[in-house]
Nucleic acid binder design. Structure first.
Lengths: 127, 127
DNA sequence: CGACTATTTCAATGATCGTTGAATCATGGG
DNA sequence: CCCATGATTCAACGATCATTGAAATAGTCG
């Protein structure tokens, strides 16, 4: 499969799909939040402001790598998180400003709700 | 003249299941909110404070009776709404106080989010 | 290069979802 | 009583879900 892939930039990994924030619908957001593992990823992310702590591999307490990848995709496709590649590693972050502009106040309340509840698992992203 | 049937308690219709509010988990709540019709039911309910306007049959703009019943059950089983039978009719209401105690601030933000978005359908519950 | 690591993708599974239409149940009124 | 009405239940369907484990991909480093 030869194609337009000749001029590959060395440090650019395959780009994952991120929806325009205006295209994100409330029902899709809530559907993405409707799973304890994904809520766990979200609160773990929110509890750790240090950008470079949140690489994908830091969430292994929550699920297997393959299952995590699946849940990462759900959050990403719902406009909640962004996945940024850096070398061999991928970092997760919350699309804070954009999301807050699109759905003011929602993320704070959701995170607070999830954070308070013992049914939501957590990953320790420190170190 | 609302509440005409207040004095008479003829017979009790089959009781529908309502979970204890403490047993409701955040992920289940969000899953229940992850559908545009259910969001539509919720905002329509929230927009109509008149208790006796919110009988089940008033939502027919949103879906068929049978499908509505399915979605009513989802909202009810997630602890969000209550179904009260009165004669041959059933009335829906939001479990406001309980839910707000269990998940402070969540319902307000959710309803506001859904209300603002044109993708969420509405039922006119006025007469 | 080739081994290694981090992550995604694929194929397969059983479970649950949203939807439809027909059947059923409960209640009130002639 | 029987019938009309409001609402739930059931059976079926294709679609999507969460999960698993194996395979593929992308970048790093010896």
């Amino acid at each position: 499969m030869s194609g337009a892939a000749e001029a590959i930039k060395p440090e650019v990994m395959k780009q994952l799909f991120h929806p325009e924030i205006e295209d994100v619908l409330p029902a899709d957001v809530f559907a993405a939040l409707g799973d304890p593992i994904r809520l766990g990823i979200l609160v773990s992310l929110a509890d750790c402001d240090e950008i470079d702590k949140a690489r994908c591999g830091a969430f292994t307490e929550l699920a297997s790598p393959s299952l995590l990848s699946y849940h990462f995709a759900k959050l990403r496709e719902a406009g909640i998180t962004r996945s940024r590649a850096e070398g061999t590693v991928r970092f997760l972050s919350i699309r804070r400003e954009e999301f807050d502009r699109r759905f003011p106040g929602l993320l704070d309340t959701v995170i607070e709700t999830a954070r308070r509840d013992p049914s939501v698992p957590r990953a320790k992203l420190d170190v």
